[in-house]
């Protein structure tokens, strides 16, 4: 449980970091339409539902992965992180887990005031979610890929892994 909360906090921090890197105009408002990491999910799900999405959402973008040892029947639960206040507005995420594995991340609140906010949120937040799912739903220890530079590392899955377990 504790780890899940930490993960939710880390994801929020990632969203905040991402937003803070982008130029913004206007004061941030908070959106109520959640962004989901589940590509099939309708984005109109009301926030703060204690959802019990089935574990079938676990595939994510890593569908080419070797079959993982069939996960034991584990309880699915979701945890809603505290809203983090940023200078652009509140950001809040909900993490759904099957056992210890993240199966879904919903961004419940995000800055949505200006047109620019909306386009950044619509593009950047789902992207971030996909990355989190790709690394964590596959339950990997390490990543092999084309050699990254020190800068490239900060955007890499390996960096996400190292941070998740630090």
């Amino acid at each position: 449980m504790r780890r899940a909360v930490v993960t939710a906090a880390a994801t929020t921090a990632g969203v905040v970091l991402l937003l803070s890197l982008k130029p913004h105009t206007g004061q941030g408002g908070a959106a109520t339409r959640p962004i989901s990491s589940d590509p099939g999910a309708a984005a109109a799900e009301p926030p703060s539902t204690a959802s019990t999405a089935g574990p079938s959402a676990a595939a994510g973008p890593s569908s080419g992965a070797a079959p993982s040892s069939a996960a034991p029947a584990t309880a699915t639960r979701s945890i809603t992180g505290d809203a983090a206040d940023t200078r652009y507005g509140p950001v809040q995420v909900k993490v759904t887990l099957a056992g210890a594995r993240i199966t879904r991340i919903d961004v419940l609140r995000y800055p949505n005031d200006s047109g620019r906010d909306r386009s950044i949120s619509g593009y950047a937040l789902p992207q971030l979610n996909q990355e989190a799912i790709a690394a964590q739903s596959a339950d990997i220890d390490v990543v092999s890929g084309a050699s990254y530079t020190s800068d490239g590392y900060t955007r890499s899955l390996q960096s996400a892994l190292d941070k998740a377990h630090a």
Partner: peptide, 20 residues
């Protein structure tokens, strides 16, 4: 066993496969 993700070169942030 270790699980080694292989980065997908065409989809940044995604894995092409996992080697165990």
């Amino acid at each position: 066993p270790w699980r080694v993700g292989v980065a997908d070169p065409l989809r940044p942030g995604a894995l092409a496969t996992v080697l165990t």
